[in-house]
Write a protein that binds this DNA or RNA. Structure first.
Lengths: 297, 297
DNA sequence: CCAGTTCTCTGACTAGTGTCAGCTAATGAT
DNA sequence: ATCATTAGCTGACACTAGTCAGAGAACTGG
């Protein structure tokens, strides 16, 4: 593990830096990557790259002077400044991507085809597990701007996957007060500062609560983030004094059903009449705490 | 592959640096690692870390001033300076190792036990294949100091593995003139500048040559370096105008025999009376060139 | 013994990375 | 309207990393 660190960072890391940063400081290159084709705002960049605000500001000025990015205040809050790549900036990003690919090519070149397949497979395994390991789950306010963003993603997905779409007003609603202590909790899962999933517990009656709003971004689905989110939700539920957790789900969300079954939820008969619900589950936290499997099979 | 680079270098790399370099610049920490418990000389450090000689010198002065290393001229050549860790230096190295382990621990902590096993396995696979990919094989003079070092390792291993030990004077000798163009070639395999294997071709008679001195360091055995070395030797043999390659080997060197068989060498009856030889092989380069497998099974 | 080479070191210099304190403008709460 | 807060910016500063030229000591081949 220690030797892996050294092997990988010395080779991949340092060489990549040299490769990418040949005519551009690494800090600027990282920033261009992080801004990306869809743009970002300064606040987000600072959080994701964990940079000092002064330093980031200076990097942005430098890229601006080179004509690679354009910065403009956000209309709704003019303190916040939005950054996007100019045409030149986008072609610079494309060039950086190209060099990265070229480097990867050169790195794998001495290997035979089966060896190349093995290393690519092992690398994606490492990446998936690191993504899982570096995911941080925190309790947050359900009305924060990132919570809202997560919920928008969640509803958009339901709209797409449910037969006949999804209309939030017809479903059992969850007011944001229900998802805040002491009545409930809202969790956000982040990877490198970026939200990639959410979930909520809502108290229904003394000792009984409900799991709501479970969503994991498609880009990181299937690596175990749903399970960790569910476990954290159960911990929060326990803190709120809940002993029985219920949930309802739609027949189209097959992965979700599998997740609940794997984690000790029993299918029960309908306990409400949510128009979008096809399956109902519940789990007694007292009984199941010890028997929750520690990993998906 | 590109995303793997980013994922790993951003997480493992940068975090490791921070962790290790908390009270010490990264350059110094790297240098302490590279000097290691057995010491090294300045020339080697420069080659392995690819540092400017002035820069390296300054780093060494700094470590010397901190009482972590001691530098002394080599007796046999007083231009070359040998570096070793002092007592304080060794405990600093131990501390750096400790922090690295602690970091690895923290990194894997959020994962379940089976996930941890999977990531460790995938990491060692990546490491093995990167080691293979970054191995460079070059033709060198058989009397250079690193060639001599490789040969010493080789003979030491024969001494250990042969029943009754090994005495180079009793075996068929190979004068270093036989292993230099135009009569032969000596190859060294290096990983990050450090020799990890060697091998030689020696011309016997017009069109016929012999493979000698095949050695791969135990630390990197079994990852495919022997195969690459053998392939390079065959290329060199072809350049020297050889069409038939012969070799003899001892019964205790079972991996070597397997390697030769896998790469198209046929066992033949004894063609010499080397006292240490139990098996004799040959391969016709013209016939076999196309059928050499591109990877071990 | 001499000339050229090797190895290391010193000094001068540069670019990049990062930190800190204080400032201004915009916003939100009272 | 006032005051605290948030977001971003500027200037000053420090340190790391790295480059380059040149000097001196030690060695090698003739």
């Amino acid at each position: 593990m220690r030797s892996f660190n050294r092997a990988v960072t010395l080779r991949v890391g340092i060489l990549t830096d040299r490769f990418l940063g040949r005519d551009r400081p690494l800090g600027e290159a990282r920033l261009i990557f992080e801004i990306g084709r869809q743009g970002s705002d300064v606040r987000e960049l600072r959080a994701r790259l964990e940079l000092d605000s002064g330093y980031l500001s200076r990097l942005l000025r430098s890229l601006e002077k080179q004509g690679l990015v354009a910065v403009a205040p956000l209309e709704s809050d003019r303190r916040i400044r939005q950054v996007r790549l100019t045409q030149d900036g986008e072609s610079e990003l494309a060039e950086l991507d190209r060099r990265g690919d070229q480097f990867a090519q050169a790195m794998l070149d001495p290997l035979s085809e089966p060896e190349r397949e093995r290393i690519v497979e092992a690398m994606s395994e490492v990446e998936r597990l690191l993504n899982l390991s570096f995911t941080r789950i925190t309790v947050e306010d359900p009305s924060g701007y990132e919570a809202k963003w997560c919920l928008a993603q969640y509803f958009a997905e339901l709209e797409e996957r449910f037969e006949g779409g999804f209309d939030a007003t017809k479903s059992i609603t969850a007011d944001s007060r229900d998802l805040r202590p002491p009545r409930g909790a809202f969790l956000i899962a982040r990877l490198d500062g970026r939200p990639i999933g959410c979930g909520a517990v809502k108290g229904l009656s003394p000792g009984v609560g409900s799991i709501k709003r479970m969503w994991v971004s498609a880009a990181v689905r299937g690596i175990g983030i749903g399970r960790r989110l569910l476990q954290e939700l159960e911990k929060e539920a326990a803190k709120l004094g809940l002993e029985l957790l219920r949930l309802e789900t739609n027949k189209s969300l097959v992965e979700a059903q599998a997740l609940y079954r794997r984690n000790g939820y029993q299918e029960v008969k309908a306990f409400n009449d949510d128009p979008y619900a096809d399956h109902w589950f519940e789990k007694n936290l007292e009984h199941h705490r010890a028997s929750t499997p520690s990993a998906s099979p």
